[in-house]
Amino acid sequence: MTLKTTLLASAIALAPVAALAADLTIGFSQIGSESGWRAAETTVTKQEAEKRGIDLKFADAQQKQENQIKAIRSFIAQGVDAILVAPVVATGWDEVLEEAADAEIPVVLLDRTVDADESLYLTAVTSDLVHEGKVAGEWLANEMAGEDCRIVELQGTTGSSPAIDRKAGFEQGIAGHDNLEIVRSQTGDFTRAQGKVVMESFLKAEGGENICALYAHNDDMAVGAIQAIKEAGLKPGEDIKIVAIDAVPDAHKAIAAGEMNATIELTPNMAGPALDALEAYLANGTEPAKWIQTESKLFTSADDNMAIFNMKKDLGY
């Protein structure tokens, strides 16, 4: 143990590049597994770390910021080489990020950003949430081609950045189309259960036949809403068009079954680009861009959804 440490220390002293060859230890504070996508992100992150021979310390915060802050503090205390964080909310991170900066541990944000000074983290790997919403909005505008459409919206967790940005993006996407109107918008907390409950209330409050489309901030809420629409005796995908974001396997399955119309992919592989950037930074101090954007691909019934479903289903979604 001491011998190894001495060797490591001398290796670091003699050749900084050689130190990289030694095992990296990286802490990963995950939000939880509130949706299937989140579980897939965890799986893919673990796979990516294993592929690179990185020792990944994983902490599940069960949707609580205080747990994430505790996890980050414990990573700092353990002296990890870098920290990956998928922040549960946007605010309240300054203090703990400063502690990491003081310990000279680079922090990479995964999939969501925070309201903190840019200097406090190395880079953020996210999809452009606004862009995703915009793709969804533009798809619906094209699909309706000028026909009047009353839209209901299932928002994500109130105050979370995907909820704010996907809402804003969708509104940009349908801007200038006076035939499209969002008539109801309520949070479904990104969960199937709440998606179903809130859709039930939409169907009653507006009358199912008066709703032409549903925009859900994630697929899980859409899957819950599909059940509510079926129970109300309507045909999801036909009577009510459904567009959501994430492209989880169940969404591909629903599109293949004609119960859903479109989904925009949020790739679960955020860790790949993040670890690439970290390795480059730790090896020779290459500063990555402050923001690394992932692709937002649109899937509709035109794609072979069953094939994609079979490919994705073992990722842990």
């Binding site: 597994s33 509130e34 069960q62 199937r192 259960a193």
Partner: peptide
């Protein structure tokens, strides 16, 4: 009942 309602067991959110 909650699991049956959404045809799935959501360990993180059920009964939260």
């Amino acid at each position: 009942i909650v699991a049956a309602d959404i045809k799935g067991a959501d360990a993180n959110n059920a009964g939260l």
